[in-house]
Every structure is written in structure tokens, then in C-alpha cells.
Design a protein around this nucleic acid. Structure first.
Lengths: 108, 108
DNA sequence: AGCTCATATGAATTCATATTCATATGAGCT
DNA sequence: AGCTCATATGAATATGAATTCATATGAGCT
């Protein structure tokens, strides 16, 4: 069951997925570098199972993907949706979303 | 009841408002030039009252505004949310939405 | 194999949002 | 004032999405 990528329906669906405070925060957490579920959970204080449900919704929408790394699972934003030149733009087909680049502390 | 503009809550709320096929189509109809409700309704085939409800939701979110013009009411996108340089960008605070410029026929 | 840590899943419930339908308002016209 | 056109509103219902809780899976360790 593939979704026609540039249709307004699919774009609106992806937008709906992003139009949630928790999921928006998840994207902002992982858009610059991939993180494990528990790393995300340390920043976003919701029940573990709830976070997992949200991650599934993001996965199903093709906005993020995961890969297992030992005991934990790493999440990152799907390369297909990131505009190649600017790392902070999410392309949804009928429209694209721009996140202002946040200044992370460089001590790490 | 004013909404703090750049909060993630408000941004997500506006995104939620835009994450609807009908409302997305409304925005696309009026983003380049203002239109009356019936002009919009000619393009977007939903019940008049339903369209009106959607327009209210867009108004309440501060995404569009209306002004009466005789018997009809003109709708246009709020200037505050349009990035001044590019007419096709909607600024939501924590992120902004970009619409590709559609080529309208120039016969008008 | 049994134990623990990390994450996922499913079903039930709660909460939000879209849709419908009937009706109201507001402006222009006769 | 009464009529019509254009739009808005409210309440009822239907649909969908988020949250909770209990439990399952999967990997590494002893």
C-alpha cells in the first residue's frame, strides 16, 4: 500500500501527522541527529508507550525511520522528505515545512 | 484571548488547522488573490455551511481574514502570516510552510 | 534457559474534530 | 416593509485521533 507522493491528500496527511505537539517535538529532536527512543523520551516527558505510538505514526507517514542498534532503536528523519540543500526543510509534496536552524551548544 | 504567537502550541494549532484537505484547498485558492465565499465554493464543492465552518476555523486561527463587499464576503490570507518577500510562504512561528508558485493562466 | 532493559503492540476509553441540517443574519433591491 | 441572495451560526451526530494500561517482543547478559 503505497501512497501517491505528491497528492494533496498525502501532503495533508503528513501535515496532520506533524500537527501534533509531541510529534513536532520529536521531529525537532531528531532532525539534526538521530536519537534512540530513550534519548527522545528524556527530552519529551510522555509515557513510553505513548511515545512509541507517536513514533509509529511518524514512521507510517514516512516522515521518520528507525534502525535497531543493540538493545535500543535509533530514529531519524527520512532522507526523502528532507530537502537536500537545507537540512531543516521538510518537503511534503504540495508544500514544504521550514524549521529555523536552532543553535545547539557546541560543547558536545 | 490573544495567542502567544511564536509558541510551539500556537504553531502546532495553526498547522492542525492547515492539515485538512478542504482548508488547504481554500488557502491555495486565496493565497494569490482574495475571493468571495461563492467564488471559493465554485472551486471547492462542499456544502455552503460546511465551507463557512472551515472559513471560521481559518479565521479563528488568524490564517485568513474577511471583509464584506456588498452582499458577499471577500476572504484573503492574513498579511501577518505571509512572509513579505515571497508571497507563497506562510510563517507559523516555530516553522513555516512553503507553497510552490502555481502557474495561473495569464489570459485574465 | 532465564533475567533485564528497551521498545512495540492491542484493545478500551477519552477527547477532539468534521459533517449535516435547520435556521439566522445582513445587504441590496422593488 | 417584504423578498432574495450570500453567508454565518448552533446543535446534533458521526468520525477519527490521542491516551492509558496491560502485555508482548527482541536483544544482550549470566
Amino acid at each position: 500500500m503505497k501512497k501517491s507522493k505528491n497528492s494533496i491528500k498525502n501532503c495533508v496527511h503528513q501535515l496532520k501527522v506533524l500537527a501534533d505537539e509531541t510529534r513536532m517535538m520529536i521531529i525537532q529532536e531528531i532532525i539534526e541527529e538521530s536519537k534512540t527512543v530513550s534519548q527522545i523520551n528524556q527530552k519529551i516527558l510522555v509515557e513510553q508507550s505513548l511515545l512509541s505510538h507517536h513514533l509509529k505514526i511518524l514512521r507510517d507517514a514516512g516522515l521518520v525511520f528507525s534502525e535497531r542498534n543493540g538493545k535500543s532503536v535509533l530514529y531519524q528523519t527520512s532522507p526523502e522528505i528532507l530537502s537536500n540543500s537545507q537540512a531543516q526543510t521538510i518537503n511534503l509534496g504540495c508544500c514544504s515545512l521550514n524549521f529555523p536552524k536552532k543553535n545547539k551548544d557546541l560543547s558536545k
